[in-house]
Design a protein around this nucleic acid. Structure first.
Lengths: 143, 143
DNA sequence: ATTCGTTGTAATGTCAATAATTACAACTGA
DNA sequence: TCAGTTGTAATTATTGACATTACAACGAAT
């Protein structure tokens, strides 16, 4: 299975927040319009981003804003915030290998180490990209 | 969502094939016993691995074997063979960003490049590990 | 040639996650 | 108080994962 589109959605949200912060009040309806997903989905997502301390959402009056400068938020922060994978584990291990088989008894431990390194390689890369980088990419694309 | 357990299952299968090749005929039922998943699931998985040229399966008489030396099969080969992600794309992009919004119109192109690099980092790591490596890890664990 | 164990595959069912949608209470600036 | 918005619950549809039953096709051994 692929990593949930919540992740690209969240990045899209930050791009909108930054791009339109001076022109519009960036509400869940506004974001729903730009992303083409349901406003309730946006609100849940904003809730996760808020819980992670990445955005501020104005209750009552409405509108979302970034809680930090974009160059201080990495894609890894966003990735964790929106909980793309369970327990932060990229690979889903088959649950109950047979412990009376020598392979079944040891495969999990033996593989975990390797898989952890794979996951780390990916997360390091995510951590090396900030929302500011993405914003620049989009600005350049817009021109 | 996490990457399907088909991946760890496939690695488990190879470990069994190698470990038991001289003692037992490694059938789908045998593998189902060691992995604790349904034999039909195993057969489908073996079908994918066979299609990728990684295993040979004996029709009629029964039993699976590796089609190449384990040090010539990387985890990336296995990963692709069992089709863990659609179109080989790790990240699922939200489908229809609004093209009349400057952000919506450009986010996909702008992000794809970055995400491709993240995916590459992960795949490079997967490609650096062979089934032989994993086999050794398990042998060491068994002792 | 028949038998027996096995593979390949179709059909069905269950379960969990994604995402859309409706509805509405709670909040807050005007 | 009012209007616009957020937070959240409830419901539904769709999809993928995986289990399970069933059975035809296959091939080695007798």
């Amino acid at each position: 299975m692929q990593i949930s589109s919540r992740f690209t959605l969240a990045v899209h949200i930050f791009a909108c927040i930054d791009t339109f912060k001076d022109e519009y009040k960036v509400t869940s309806d506004f974001l729903a319009g730009s992303t083409n997903v349901n406003p309730v989905v946006i609100r849940k997502l904003l809730g996760q981003l808020k819980a992670a301390g990445l955005v501020e959402v104005a209750r009552g009056t409405g509108g979302a804003s970034a809680a930090k400068p974009l160059n201080e938020i990495t894609l890894l922060d966003v990735y964790y915030a929106v909980e793309c994978v369970e327990n932060g584990e990229l690979f889903h291990f088959h649950e109950n290998p047979n412990t009376s088989c020598p392979v079944g008894r040891n495969i999990h431990r033996a593989l975990d180490d390797r898989l952890f390194r794979v996951q780390n390689a990916m997360e390091r890369e995510l951590a090396s990209i900030t929302l500011e980088d993405v914003k620049q990419d989009i600005q350049n694309a817009i021109v």
